[in-house]
């Protein structure tokens, strides 16, 4: 597909917004989970594995944002 320079700029902005907003969303999700994981770990170190796993689950949202950004940049 041929895109003119102004469209290329808009695609880049769209990709940036996708990654940025997804990152903010993931961060918002992680802050409570991270706090809870640290709290549980402070009492019992055995919660390290579970805590880490739970904390990175919202990270998938950031990956979705990245995928959308890559599609925008390389498919169009």
């Amino acid at each position: 597909m041929v895109v003119d320079p102004s469209q290329a700029g808009m695609i880049a902005v769209g990709a940036g917004i996708a990654v940025g907003l997804a990152g903010i969303g993931a961060g918002m999700g992680e802050q409570a989970i991270g706090a809870a994981a640290v709290g549980a770990m402070a009492e019992d170190e055995k919660f390290f594995g579970k805590g880490l796993l739970m904390t990175v689950i919202p990270e998938s949202i950031a990956i979705f944002g990245l995928v959308v950004a890559l599609i925008l940049l390389f498919v169009f």
Binding site: A32, A36, V38, G39, E43, D44
Partner: peptide, 16 residues
């Protein structure tokens, strides 16, 4: 959201 984060740490600790 505010309340959730405020209590997440202490509640997880207390539950443990």
């Amino acid at each position: 959201m505010g309340n959730t984060v405020k209590y997440a740490y202490i509640v997880a600790r207390v539950r443990a």
